[in-house]
């Protein structure tokens, strides 16, 4: 398998496109995370809160995005993971996960990461600092 330290600045990790967001995805995340805020699972509660429909947990999208780095966890680990939640994710949205290498340091690599919706809008974006084991 490729190693992250062989990457050059501007190179990208293999993108991942998720299946369209489904209610069961969000019910499973609610159960696994313990975040039962009903705006993520129950239509009536979402509309009561002024939303057009249920929205994905921001942390579900953030959790998904980190899997771009999972194949490299023998080489290092995510030391810092910083995300700004920019746009809501609704049912049936198709999310693509991206990471591009921004800076190379002796002990760590800095990536720009984002999850983008099919309409091109950024749902979440931020940075990953991947610490390399010496």
């Amino acid at each position: 398998m490729n190693r992250l330290i062989d990457m050059k600045i501007g190179e990208v990790l293999n993108e991942i496109s998720l299946e369209p967001v489904s209610r069961i995805d969000l019910i499973k995340y609610a159960g696994a995370s313990g975040d039962f805020n009903p705006i993520h699972t129950i239509d009536k509660e979402a509309t009561k809160a002024g939303l057009p429909g249920i929205i994905a947990h921001g942390m579900w999208t953030m959790g998904n995005l980190s899997k771009l780095f999972t194949p490299y966890l023998e080489e290092g680990f995510i030391q810092d993971y910083k995300i700004r939640f920019a746009d809501m994710v609704f049912l049936d949205d198709v999310i693509t996960l991206k990471a591009v290498l921004d800076e190379v340091h002796e002990n760590y690599l800095d990536f720009d990461v984002m999850a983008v919706k099919a309409n091109g809008k950024v749902a979440i974006k931020g940075n990953v600092r991947f610490k390399i084991y010496q």
């Binding site: 998904n64 194949p71 084991y133």
Partner: peptide
Amino acid sequence: KRFAESIGDSHPIFIDEEYGRQSR
């Protein structure tokens, strides 16, 4: 295991005991 599944990240490093033992 349940959390990894819920974010579509069921990598053996998280859930397979033997794989974990062999890892760093």
